[in-house]
Amino acid sequence: MIEFHAVSFGYDDQETILESVDFRILPGLTLLVGPNGCGKSTLLKLAAGVEIPDKGRITVDGFDLWKDEIAARRKLAYLPEQTDLTPYASVKDIVRLVCRLQGEPAESGMEALRFFSLQEVSARTVRELSLGQRRRAVFAAALIGRQTHVLLDEPLEGMDRKISGSILAWIRRRVESGTSVVVVSHSLEPFLDLASQAITVKQGHVLTFDALPESPDEKLTTLDVMAKG
């Protein structure tokens, strides 16, 4: 379980994105919704250990994200919105790195590349890839291993219908196996039937809905209201 304990965060002194928030992300699919610029991606970056909180602490299954760095991060898979990968690393380098870190055989890395049809460009460095290929490469890295928390920022953005379908099927499998999957997305419909929790950020506070309505229409209405802020 990812838990935020009195977390405050801002990009500068003038504006606070989060102000002493306490919440936890439960197993299942959690939708992180809200209007543009409300702090969804920032919240995900904090949960992934990309940004360090100004105050408070974040734990992943009891491990502090900034004190037990390795133990906490081994349980995370993260797909950022912007694929800021090292330009001189090849796709194979990235996949090998994640395989080694997660203690997975190299074959599971190749499997992830096959999932995104990236085998043929695996020897290319990141700077030789198109933006779509970069995004698929970083998604392939998120597929490796059996992390208990998967954080996805706009996972379907820029993906074709075939891959989108495969991604949704993969998310379903992970949710059914007890993984907590957090998805930031403006399109709610693809995740509607799987979503069990919803989170939004409003004026520095995090609002969580642990029990979304069962009926799809009511669920969509609730999420729609949250997404519109």
């Binding site: 250990g49 990309v50 991060r73 081994r74 995370l76 993260y78 090292t86 330009p87 001189y88």
Partner: peptide, 18 residues
Amino acid sequence: PRVCLGFDGWLRHLPGKA
């Protein structure tokens, strides 16, 4: 800049000490 790109992004979330 060519080595450190991503140190404050994707690379940082991997299980390794900063």
